[in-house]
Design a protein around this nucleic acid. Structure first.
Lengths: 181, 181
DNA sequence: TCGATATATATCGACTTGATATAAAAATCG
DNA sequence: CGATTTTTATATCAAGTCGATATATATCGA
């Protein structure tokens, strides 16, 4: 699935500017399982507009650059349907954190603790954000499902990190002691 | 973190060829949270060899192309330490499946069921694979931690999908009925 | 024996990211 | 009130990465 399909999907909910799409993907309901940069969003919108999948409405604003509000067309909806009518590719999960944990033996005890606690804090905050918007999207069952998924997965991660914290940091500390002998 | 650091990390465990690195990343302990293609691995190895971070040993094989076995040098270990001495970037999770679930209203009931059950089966298999290699890596505490993390997260996903299955498919079916009225 | 799969390296087009540029309104703050 | 930061908004580009493909041989099962 490419950025074009992502944009079509978002625009199937409501019309939006490239900037708004980026914000949705960065902070909104989408942020937990999708990525997209300006460098891919803007060309995608321009391209799809030229293909008749979107319409643009330039909202003039005093001084500021025109706001280009994109809306999906029938052709766009057809293209979206087509793109969704295939089995999704396997999920992709990239974690520099887990890579560092795997190489934990190469880290100092302090560094490990710093990395671990930062990750735990970030995950806890993320869980809070997900729970915060669980009430808002209670209408659509797709939204509810995705929000619940986020809570389940991030919740499990937080729980695991909390459970293993002592063990992990102690083991790293004792290993440092071994090395010092 | 780039592919170069990934290669250094793997080569800090043992020497390997580009092909073996790709297999480890694709099937081994790393596969659940790392990605890398030949198109990035081979150039990275060549480049780092020229910088003195790796050594190559060409193992001749009758007929087959030479096996280029790479090993990390002291300079390579130093570079790895340096690369690990920063806070990891936030994890990235990309899921076409969740994107489709979000747009579930645009899918037919049959398509939704097919997508859902495929995902559930894939996740269950992945959980099996992770559990299968949990005994093997019981020695290193980094390996144990990462394996446990995988079990916790994928286990939570499987559980969530199983719990919500009826609800999700029923709701999709009833929505189809609404649309038909 | 014949097609499929595995071993092994290598390249390349297409796509994406992350950074940067530009510009002005709005908000924050001493 | 004036100064600084943040937010709104579009756009581009180098660097990095993926996915596909090419090449060549061995091995394994039907």
């Amino acid at each position: 699935m490419n950025i074009r399909t992502l944009c079509l999907g978002i625009l199937s909910f409501r019309e939006a500017t490239g900037y708004e799409i980026k914000k949705l993907v960065e902070e909104g309901m989408f942020s937990h399982f999708i990525d997209a940069s300006y460098g891919s969003i803007y060309p995608a919108l321009t391209h799809m507009e030229s293909e008749g999948m979107l319409t643009v409405r330039a909202e003039e604003q005093s001084g500021k650059p025109d706001k280009k509000v994109y809306a999906i067309t029938e052709r766009g909806r057809a293209s979206l349907s087509e793109a969704l009518d295939v089995l999704p590719r396997p999920d992709k999960f990239k974690s520099e954190f887990l890579f560092q944990m795997l190489l934990a033996r190469a880290l100092s005890g302090e560094q490990l603790a710093a990395v671990y606690d930062t990750r735990l804090r970030d995950l806890t905050e993320e869980l809070g954000r997900i729970k915060a918007c669980s009430t808002a999207g209670a209408t659509d069952f797709g939204l509810r499902f995705v929000n619940g998924y986020g809570q389940a997965i991030v919740g499990a991660a937080v729980q695991y990190l909390e459970e293993r914290r002592e063990e992990m940091l102690n083991e790293a500390a004792s290993r440092s002691a071994d090395a010092a002998e």
